[in-house]
Amino acid sequence: MSELGDRILLLIVAATGVSVLIAGWAGGLVEAEAGGWTELALFGFLGFLVFVLLVGLWRGFGEIG
């Protein structure tokens, strides 16, 4: 398997874990506690956080090889 394929598979595994942790657990807390614009802002922040973590993981996996 190529280096790019390995990185993509690692990113898929990491994305699943990060998404479950941040978007699932923290998103459930936001859904239960917040409402209105506050809820939308918190969900936007959680989505941005997931994106930043995945970009960081992608770059980190690139430095391993």
Rank of each mutant, 00 (worst) to 15 (best):
M1C: 05
M1S: 08
M1A: 08
S2D: 02
S2L: 06
E3L: 15
E3I: 15
E3W: 15
L4T: 15
G5P: 05
D6Q: 14
I8Q: 12
I8G: 03
I8R: 13
L9C: 05
L9D: 12
L10V: 01
L11D: 07
I12W: 00
I12V: 05
V13Q: 07
A14Q: 09
A15S: 13
A15F: 03
A15T: 09
T16H: 02
T16Q: 08
T16L: 08
T16C: 07
G17I: 05
V18C: 12
V20H: 01
V20A: 14
V20I: 02
I22N: 07
I22K: 09
I22Y: 00
I22V: 14
I22F: 10
A23D: 02
A23E: 05
G24S: 14
W25V: 15
W25D: 04
A26L: 12
G27T: 05
G27Q: 10
G28Q: 11
G28A: 05
L29E: 06
L29I: 09
V30Y: 01
E31A: 11
E31Y: 07
A32L: 14
A32W: 13
A32F: 13
A32R: 14
A32Q: 13
E33W: 04
E33Y: 04
A34V: 01
A34E: 04
G35N: 13
G35V: 14
G36D: 01
G36S: 10
G36Q: 06
W37G: 11
W37P: 04
T38P: 02
L40D: 09
L40R: 12
L40Y: 04
A41C: 07
A41T: 05
A41F: 02
L42F: 10
L42A: 13
L42N: 08
F43K: 03
F45K: 08
F45Q: 10
F45E: 12
L46W: 00
L46K: 02
G47V: 13
G47A: 15
G47S: 04
F48Q: 07
F48H: 11
F48V: 07
V50L: 12
V50G: 02
V50W: 12
V50A: 06
V50K: 03
V50I: 09
F51S: 05
F51D: 11
V52N: 10
L53Q: 12
L53D: 11
L53A: 13
L53E: 11
L54Y: 04
V55K: 14
V55P: 09
G56N: 12
G56D: 04
G56C: 09
L57Q: 10
L57T: 07
L57G: 05
W58V: 03
R59Q: 15
R59H: 09
R59E: 13
G60V: 06
G60W: 02
G60T: 06
F61P: 00
F61H: 05
F61M: 03
F61A: 03
G62K: 04
G62C: 10
E63L: 15
I64L: 13
I64W: 10
G65C: 03
G65N: 06
